[in-house]
Amino acid sequence: MAKRIDVKDLDMYYGDFLAVKGVTMTIEPRAVTALIGPSGCGKSTFLRSLNRMHEVIPGAYVKGEVLVDDQNLYAPGVDPVGVRRRVGMVFQRPNPFPTMSIYDNVVAGVKLNSKRMKKSDMDDLVEASLKGANLWSEVKDRLAKPGSGLSGGQQQRLCIARTIAVKPDVVLMDEPCSALDPISTLAIEDLINDLKSEYTIVIVTHNMQQAARVSDMTGFFNLEATGQPGRLVEYDDTQKIFSNPGQKATEDYISGRFG
């Protein structure tokens, strides 16, 4: 289920603007990979190109290869819709569908694919997904209530439940905790730890402690200069990155000695 991702020399463009250049990395299955780096260096752009959400923005495109299971996501004939089912995504701001109940939010993705699913199967799936997202005990009595009535942290876990309900191979998270309080943040971090047994997880974060706490591997992105494209500067075991980074820029950034 969890899949390895091989990124080969990936360039990401917004129209004429080359935002990120030449990323090559292997993202391990059943592990958490954290992406860190200063603002604007292209972490989100890179993350979104892993499930072809990048091209949703008008004019945006990529060059290079992203292999999931040795299958290039950008090969001709690959349907981005199918890619996004395999590679799920959690956004910075919680975004449950406002007009749907908690229950419907969880099955929103599943319903797309399998119209006729038994009610009991659906109930099981909702329960399993919400349990998987550590939200079940908090919402099991109000599944029919709108998802927008939950707290921010609960909403974010609802979005995670919605993402894992479609059983993706990979879960991408773009600063999933940046809109949350410390307690909710801890809840999500615990959740990430649980999820990694089943999923390949890639998380973007600005919080160094968080990266150190939850991730197995860490990639550091940086801009050489303003106007230059972002690059993957260093990619290694999290322990190594935080204790003994190979690059000066990484060390500066991690220790806070950064402009």
Partner: peptide, 27 residues
């Protein structure tokens, strides 16, 4: 229509029309 909801739908693997039904029309 909030981009947030449109992208949520797309990220779940919705086609364009499914995204419209999930995010745009209810809004």
């Amino acid at each position: 229509t909030p981009r947030l909801h449109e992208e949520a739908s797309l990220a779940l693997g919705a086609t364009r029309w499914e995204m419209i039904r999930q995010a745009v029309l209810p809004f």
